[in-house]
Amino acid sequence: MAILEYIVGRILQMVPVLFGVSLVAFLCIHLVPGDPVQIMMHGRATPEVLATVRAELGLDQPLPEQYLRFIGGAIVGDLGKSIIQKAPVNEIIGERLGPSLFLLVYSAVLAVLFALPLAVVAALRAERLIDHSIRILGVVGFAMPPFWIGLLLMVLFGLVLNWFPISGYGDSFVEHLWHLFLPSVTIAVFLAPLLVQSLRSAMLDVMTADYIEVARAKGLSRRRIVVKHVLRNAAIPVVTVLAVNIGWLLGGAVIVEYVFAFPGLGSLLVRAVGFRDYPVIQGLTLVFAVIVMIINLLADLSYMAIDRRVLRR
């Protein structure tokens, strides 16, 4: 029961934030200096056309009414219509949501695969040469611009060695894995140092805990202690770090998607900004925020699954 209560409470917490988020997404078209419709049509439309478009977007209504229409539509999945692409925004976004989420999950998995062994080695050999080397590696990985790594990987593994495709999404699950390998590695290189560092320091903290000495006194093997006792406790702060930084991860993904001409939300955003396609920008703003909030919710729930102490409040 406590678990259900926790989940419901956590979801209710999201309501005021969702309100704020929707307000930001809604207002962005109204903050455009000058006439957004004029800018959207790139100054090449007759006054009659402008008036029609304005009516179509509901921009001739009073603000509160517009907001209610916006939020009412968003709740049922209607995000308006793109004048430039001549299609409903939810369809344009929906098409690209799947690939973007796939990319996100894939790169998170790769990042964990890179980071886990490195962090464990660094923590078990703390302050030795191998630990320092891993830290330097992390510092370098962190300083590399994702678009630059993407470009280099693309040239090396895509064009020179011809091992992986340099763009596209593919049609089946296996093809997705293959097509998305280079972009996912790019994002993983950017994410892994963060994971290594937080997991390493969390492990070092946990390893000084009394219950680890108790586990040693019990005669457990080093491997068992690390896997069963240390990692599980160390995962808690790492999950938090991941969740807090999910916004950065998504931001990095926007650029990487653009580099690899990947049909996802990020490249859509860049293109929409290029065209000043405000309804699409509005929709994307909302969708990105909802993704961040859902990931944070999932992080809190997995936090709860790992450590029941959060239920105690």
Binding site: D210, Y211, H229, N233, D307, R308
Partner: peptide
């Protein structure tokens, strides 16, 4: 062996 502080001697998770 048993230890001084049982509160921190058991793995919380």
């Amino acid at each position: 062996m048993i230890f001084q502080n049982p509160m921190s001697g058991l793995n919380p998770v």
